[in-house]
Amino acid sequence: MKTVRVWFSKTGAAKYISHLDLTRCMARALKLSKLPVWYTEGFNPHIYMTFAMPLSLGTEGLRECMDIRLTEGIDLTEAAKKLAENLPKDIAVLEITEPVLGFDATAYAEYELSINSEEPQVLADSIDDILSQDSIIVMKHTKKGEKEFDIKPHFTLLDKQTGPGLLRVKLRASCSQEGSVNPALLLEAVKRYENVELYAEITRIRLLTKDFSDMR
């Protein structure tokens, strides 16, 4: 038995399916691909799958990962091809590798937010202002209701680019098994401090370890 790591992207229509739906979809595709996957034991056996970091609904992921177990040694390039053939077009398999790190090594993720704006430069400046504050308080929806939350320690701005009607912001945010911070909270902050409601497409580009290197 060998654990392998499937790297995949989840874009387009697939970004609108929940984590649970993704799990079901993967299970069907694994079944169709006829890979020698390991099933859990017990009354109701199912394909063993575990995901690093669930994506929030509506967020694209360019390099996500999940682990499965194989009961026979097979060529991983071939396996990736087979799995890819059985997934919907908006879930693509990038590669299957042998895992180097445990999922608990994930500490951050890099995101890109494409924000619609009529005055992208003005927006860029106000985001700079907000991010230079000592604390950035937003209201966070939790199970127990609204709660004040400081995003400052969790967000690092990496890059900004303006285009026509668009501001692209690249940032790094906490993303680990202890807790993840949704990059959409930056939009909440702009709403709170600048009183503008923004729409953004959000993409998780990759998962990072605590020294900012790629998850492997």
Binding site: G12, A13, G58, K89, D90
Partner: peptide, 10 residues
Amino acid sequence: KPGRYVGGEI
């Protein structure tokens, strides 16, 4: 449930 409105099924 935005997944209702996007198609993209195999």
